[in-house]
Design a protein around this nucleic acid. Structure first.
Length: 411
DNA sequence: ATGCATGAGGG
DNA sequence: CCTCATGCATT
């Protein structure tokens, strides 16, 4: 395929030039493990933040062409690593020709960068380039269809034999949705409040893998992948064997949960949603409500298999609907974000390092101190007895969740 | 992402 | 009181 020539458009008419403060160039990510603030890309991200002074018309040496390259590729950019370091592996390109459609917010999704651990190390916004800089891109045969609507794209996961996510691909959203259960796009109203039974009555395979034949799509070739050497999804997804871990506990398929958790995260990010948003939306909608904490813990499986099993259906259902809405442009998923007045809690006590050290020491000797012991320890360290008691409770709980559940992960 | 807190449920 | 599932508050 033609090399990604960059359309020379360093800058146009100086006067009217909008410095284009966009975050575009932010594609580069630092090798720092700290990636806390999720670059949530939302439909209505308020007003553009005043860019750090852009030179009026001086030709800055730093031409910003780079973004365009990715911008157009719903391709893959995955990072893998061995030592936990992030490295760019490859980027497969696909070029959905986007002609005149206005860059409606609707289709904006983000590209996720994940490493071998399935951890997200970054995201790239899908920029719909208005200028139609299609020139450089592949897609030899495809013509810039005029009314090609930029449909919301949902990611398609590419997994390797180990079940690890290698990358995500964009593809027709419609179809993806179709695969899932026949979920009627009705109102989010009181649909079902299933009491969640431990019964094995959950027929959702949750398999998002290989989705080769877009048979269901009659009037358009949804699969934008064109590079001859670009492996097809099915090819990459060769999943002949179910490696190992017939891990199952208490009738709960740990592996399945693990997979879903991974999936969930990726799809969530594809929708450009943060854990917080999901939590809020989940709370707003009918049905079981969960917080950001819950989402976070689920994603990293920092919960008991039982809890995970319980959450899965809820999250799955919600996600399906979210994706559906996303397609329809109904970005009204996050409506009432209004925070209800919640009763105040006792301020979280913060133990001093010394106290923690002491507590840990006690804990090692005896993880379950008697009431008396607790009282003594509390007095010793000069903390409220109750606080100490709770500390032990939480300590035990944490221990359990991290050790037992590590059965989940394979770190 | 986590640490401390709250509450339900079981003894 | 304990365990468990969760969430608010904080790092």
């Amino acid at each position: 395929m033609p090399a990604p020539v960059q359309p020379a458009q360093p800058l146009q008419a100086p006067p009217t030039v909008q410095p284009r403060p966009s975050v575009q160039t932010q594609a580069v990510f630092q090798p720092q493990p700290s990636l806390q603030s999720p670059p949530a890309i939302l439909p209505q991200p308020a007003a553009a933040p005043p860019p750090p002074v852009a030179k009026p018309l001086e030709t800055q040496t730093q031409i910003t062409v780079q973004p365009a390259g990715f911008a157009f590729n719903p391709g893959i950019i995955s990072a893998a690593s061995l030592g936990g370091q992030t490295q760019l592996l490859s980027s497969l390109a696909a070029a959905p020709v986007i002609a005149n459609t206005i860059p409606s917010v609707q289709g904006i999704t983000s590209q996720i960068l994940t490493n071998a651990q399935g951890q997200v190390i970054g995201t790239l916004p899908w920029v719909v380039n208005p200028a139609g800089i299609t020139t450089a891109n592949a897609t030899p045969a495809v013509l810039p269809a005029q009314n090609l609507q930029v449909q919301a794209v949902t990611p398609q996961l590419l997994l390797n034999a180990q079940g690890q996510v290698i990358a995500t691909l964009a593809s027709s959203a419609l179809q993806t949705a179709a695969i899932r259960k026949p979920n009627a796009p009705e109102s989010p109203a009181k649909n079902e409040v299933q009491p969640i039974q431990p019964a094995p009555a959950l027929p959702q395979p949750a398999v998002v893998i290989a989705n080769p034949a877009p048979a269901a799509k009659p009037s358009s070739a949804p699969v934008p992948i064109t590079c001859s050497e670009t492996p097809t999804v099915s090819q990459l997804v060769s999943k002949p064997q179910t490696p190992n871990t017939g891990a199952e506990e208490d009738g709960i398929n740990l592996e399945e949960i693990r997979e879903f958790a991974k999936n969930f995260k990726i799809r969530r990010l594809s929708l450009g949603l943060t854990q917080t948003q999901v939590g809020q939306a989940l709370t707003a909608t009918e049905g079981p409500a969960y917080s950001q904490s819950a989402i976070c813990r689920f994603e990293k499986l920092d919960i008991t298999p039982k809890s995970a099993q319980k959450l899965k259906p809820v999250l799955e259902k919600w996600l399906s609907e979210a994706e559906l809405r996303n397609q329809e442009g109904q970005q009204n998923l996050m409506e009432f974000v209004g925070g209800e007045p919640s009763k105040k809690r006792k301020r979280r006590t913060s133990f001093t390092p010394q106290a923690i050290e002491a507590l840990n020491a006690y804990f090692e000797k005896n993880a379950l101190p008697t009431g008396q012991e607790i009282t003594e320890i509390a007095k010793e360290l000069n903390y409220d007895r109750e606080v100490v008691r709770v500390w032990f409770c939480n300590r035990r709980q944490t221990l359990k969740n991290t050790s037992k559940l590590n059965v989940f992960q394979i770190p």
